[in-house]
Design a protein around this nucleic acid. Structure first.
Length: 868
RNA sequence: GCGGACGUGGCGAAACAGGUAGACGCAAGGGACUUAAAAUCCCUCGGUCGUAAGGCUGUGCGGGUUCGACCCCCGCCGUCCGCACCA
């Protein structure tokens, strides 16, 4: 019988239908089974699935299907991160409603994702723009407010002049808006904030428990939280410019041990003292204005010179009687950190040294490196920040840096002029956005009562549909009716908060909502969360290493403290996958070309050259880059899938590269995946004919060929299982190929009963190992092998340990560390036998050249090394 | 500047409790089957010397430890990523 080609698109539709009808992947709580929660970062509903999605969701699906087959009760849900600016932009460009646009996109993407055959529980689907979702988010907001975790303050904010909204610190990259790329401006605005800083220490400490997170991500969060331990101390000020000629100044330092090296104080241009002094000093005022003009971009900071302005004020050194330090306003001191003021110790801080050299200030070394002497240790242009002994510091002399820190802090505290203080870089999270398409913040501003929360019974605060985008700014703010409400407290006329939530709020708790997505009167069902959480394996892009992943960790703690959850860490395992990249093409004029616009032409015998399909003009092949519309190097999964099927795409995106690295998409590589699918199908069809029946009994003995096939099958089974457990999808795929290469020739061998059994067993194992990657093909093979159940529901077979080892092993034989031969030897062979056999080999004797054998190293099962 | 990761064939990569480097895939070359093509199957494929057997060499570069190093240590070079005046 001539084997028919496997028609992937057709069969895939069939199996997807079967799974849907049978509700194969709908999950219920079942305390009898161990649970496993697999989650991929949910997508923004742009309207089209791209290859990056395919790779991300396939990884999760492989894990989900594998764990399912291993007997876990697997939760694998999908939803939509559906609020955000693109919907408003679409509205402005095309006059559609943000809501309509979003839900249409969701429908389109849902259909595409379903076409990928993902083992998702669609009954749990949610979109953050669903009223039922943001209603509960508003409830959380009110809970947080009641708990003191939400507050309002006027503050300098990052203002994106293109998107017309505020950005969180985390959303400003190199001084530019993360979406618009516009230079961010500073503005004073009243904003809502989450007290993420209350959890700074806990968020930091929690990182140590996340042993299944990439070190890189933990490190990035650690740096972001930016804990520093030191002291805050007060200097007495004097000098004529001061009002009344007297005052005090607080500074923060992480190096209190270097207090005796202090030669000046520096305050930020935004410091209250600077502002006061500037009132009477026009030159200082000019200097402050100059500092304000200085940009915050990376370039400007890099180039910015350390500049200062001597205020004429003097500060008394707290320990060196009579010593007076000048007080400068300096452009490198940040108002937002610590006290907005520092003491400058030039010898042990590079910035202070640069500053001191410029303004001819004293440099007093007070920490002496171990190998140097206090008398000859000089600082020129490089500060010394290492460890050493303290010198020139009265009572601290001779101490180590750490001991000196302790001593000085105790003295400061005793003198009541300072105290130990820990600071964090982490700032509170500003969540107000002046946008329409987001979850309304459930607050009301009353002229009489001030800020009043919307009563729970009045939730949700629903977004009005009748808004216009014909003017800049927030449509909610100029909506004629929506914002005018009665004050819940005094019944007087009041106004709604017209700002909406940062969309990162929406994504900070969706993983918990998935545990009970249809709860109507509370955000989550704590019992359901107790069962399902934490997420066992979370998968997504590393670009969320700080933002989303830190916010979610904060939210989980805040929800815990409001009684909704019982855990601190939402994601027990995290995996950050690489991107899908593709070569780029440009014509002679530097214009980007799509892969469809190029072809390879013969180059007069000298290999091939790349030319355009239009006029044959030469094409320049550029570096592979992330697929993007602007570079025209996109491969559309929908188009690919219609031709080759989802399984081919799924297989290929996981095949060539390790999942944490970028995958280079190539049409040739994808063809290879397609060839493999056909090959699997041919092998299984052949095996179905040549192999034993489904209910065949295991024969008492196996032929040598049968044993060889069984070993190959069980080894592959073991290797694929271990690889998936370690998220080594590329290794699992390599093992599958390796097995196919062993299986195919075995089918041509003589066929006794034991071989028939082995062939069936191998075909079933083959179906199992490819199934997590190519689930439609898996089902098709399973059916062809005579099963009338779903492979999706079949347990993963255990590899037989006896079949994972051979009777004989091949070991390398080295002479003086150089491989000279190999030796096939019985598996249990003794050290002595192994050594004797090795020394008898001709190649070994030749290599020894008659020299006496000094030593023979034998590592059983591994290697023999003869030292001569 | 600070911190981190990574350098292996033409390409993507395997192998890392220190134990036969290059599994597997792509590309390339040769062959079989075809009237022909597609599809499929078989063979070769780090470099170099050799007809061959086999030898030498080889995991960014230079040292070191070891019977033995892609792996550990020291010093360089390069690429990528994150943070960035945080006192």
């Amino acid at each position: 019988m001539a084997a028919e080609r496997y028609n992937a698109p057709d069969r895939e539709r069939h199996w997807q239908q079967v799974w849907r009808v049978q509700e194969t992947f709908e999950t219920r709580r079942d305390p009898a089974k161990p649970k496993y929660y697999v989650l991929e970062m949910f997508p923004y509903p742009s309207g089209r699935v791209h290859m990056g999605h395919v790779r991300n969701y396939t990884m999760g699906d492989v894990v989900a299907r594998y764990k399912r087959a291993r007997g876990f009760n697997v939760l694998h849900p999908m939803g939509w991160d559906a609020f955000g600016l693109p919907a408003e932009n679409a509205s402005m460009e095309r006059g559609v409603s943000p809501k309509g646009w979003t839900y249409e996109n969701i429908a389109a993407m849902r259909a595409q994702l379903q076409g990928l055959g993902l083992s998702l529980d669609w009954s749990r689907e949610l979109a953050t723009c669903d009223e039922s979702y943001y209603k509960q988010q508003q409830k959380l907001f009110l809970d947080f407010y009641a708990k003191g975790l939400v507050y309002r303050k006027k503050s300098k904010v990052n203002w994106d002049p293109v998107d017309n909204t505020v950005l969180a610190n985390e959303q400003v990259i190199d001084g530019r808006g993360w979406r618009s790329g516009a230079l961010v401006e500073q503005r004073e605005l009243e904003q809502w904030f989450f007290r993420i800083t209350d959890y700074a220490e806990d968020l930091l400490a929690g990182l140590d428990t996340l042993d299944r997170w990439p070190d890189k991500v933990r490190l990035m969060q650690r740096n972001w939280i930016g804990k520093s331990e030191g002291a805050r101390l007060r200097f007495k000020l004097s000098g004529e410019p001061l009002p009344g000629g007297k005052g005090e100044l607080e500074v923060y330092t992480t190096r209190p041990d270097t207090i005796f090296g202090a030669s000046f104080l520096a305050i930020s241009p935004g410091h209250p003292l600077a502002l006061v002094l500037a009132k009477k000093n026009p030159a200082l005022k000019d200097f402050l204005a100059e500092c304000a003009r200085m940009g915050t971009s990376q370039e400007e900071i890099d180039k910015a010179e350390k500049k200062g302005f001597d205020t004429g004020v003097k500060a008394a050194h707290p320990f060196r009687t009579g010593a007076k330090l000048p007080v400068y306003v300096a452009n490198f001191v940040l108002m937002e950190y610590g006290a907005g003021a520092v003491f400058g110790c030039p010898a042990h801080d590079q910035r202070d040294l640069d500053f001191a050299n410029k303004y001819k200030l004293k440099v007093r070394p007070v920490v002496i490196p171990q190998d140097k002497d206090a008398t000859n240790f000089k600082i020129a242009n490089e500060s010394y920040t290492g460890d050493g002994r303290i010198a020139n510091s009265m009572f601290l002399d001779g101490m180590s840096v750490d001991a000196a820190k302790e001593e000085i802090i105790q003295r400061l505290e005793k003198k009541k002029i300072g105290k130990r203080e820990t600071n964090y870089r982490l700032r509170d999270w500003g969540v107000s956005r002046q946008r329409y398409w987001g979850a309304p913040i459930p607050m009301i501003r009353c002229p009489e009562c001030g800020v009043v929360p919307v009563p729970e019974a009045d939730l949700p605060v629903t977004l009005p549909d009748d808004v216009t985008f014909d003017a800049p700014g927030n449509p909610l703010d100029r909506h004629p009716a929506w914002k005018h409400v009665k004050c819940p407290s005094c019944q007087g006329a009041a106004q709604r908060e017209t700002d909406t939530c940062d969309t990162f709020v929406d994504s900070s708790w969706y993983f918990a909502r998935f545990c009970s997505p249809h709860e109507d009167d509370r955000p989550v069902d704590p019992e359901a969360c107790d069962y399902w959480l934490p997420v066992d394996q979370y998968i997504g892009g590393v670009e969320h290493a700080i933002l989303h992943l830190l916010y979610s960790r904060f939210f989980t703690r805040a929800m815990r403290d409001c009684g909704h959850l019982n855990l601190a860490e939402p994601f027990a395992g995290l995996f950050t996958q690489g991107m899908v990249i593709h070569e780029t093409y440009k014509d002679a004029g530097g214009k980007w070309l799509s892969p469809d616009d190029i072809r390879f032409a013969d180059n007069g015998g000298e290999g091939e050259r790349c030319v355009t399909t239009i006029d044959g003009a030469p094409v320049e092949i550029g570096a592979p880059e992330k697929m993007s519309k602007s570079k025209k190097n996109v491969v559309d999964p929908a188009v690919f899938q219609a031709h080759y099927g989802a399984d081919t795409a799924r297989w290929f995106v996981l095949s060539d590269s390790p999942p944490e690295r970028d995958l280079l998409w190539s049409d040739d590589g994808a063809q290879g995946a397609w060839r493999f699918i056909q090959r699997v199908w041919r092998i299984v069809e052949d095996a179905a004919e040549k192999g034993a029946q489904p209910d065949a009994k295991k024969p008492p003995e196996f032929s040598a060929d049968a044993m060889e096939l069984r070993r190959a099958a069980h080894r592959a089974l073991d290797k694929v299982a271990k690889s998936i457990e370690g998220l080594g999808f590329n290794r699992a795929i390599a093992a599958s190929y390796e097995f196919a290469n062993a299986f195919a020739p075995a089918l041509q061998k003589s066929n006794d009963d034991s071989m028939k059994f082995a062939i069936r067993e191998a075909a079933e194992i083959f179906s199992h190992i490819v199934n997590p990657f190519m689930p439609h093909l898996g089902e098709e093979c399973w059916l062809r092998l005579g099963h009338n159940t779903l492979l999706a529901n079949a347990p993963w077979p255990d590899a037989d340990p006896a079949l994972l080892v051979d009777d004989t092993v091949t070991i390398a034989v080295q002479v003086n560390g150089k491989r000279r031969d190999e030796l096939v030897i019985a598996r249990g062979a003794s050290r002595e036998d192994t050594e004797a056999a090795a020394l008898k080999l001709d190649s070994v004797i030749r290599a020894i050249e008659g020299r006496p054998v000094k030593k023979v190293i034998v590592v059983p099962q591994r290697i023999v090394n003869v030292v001569a």
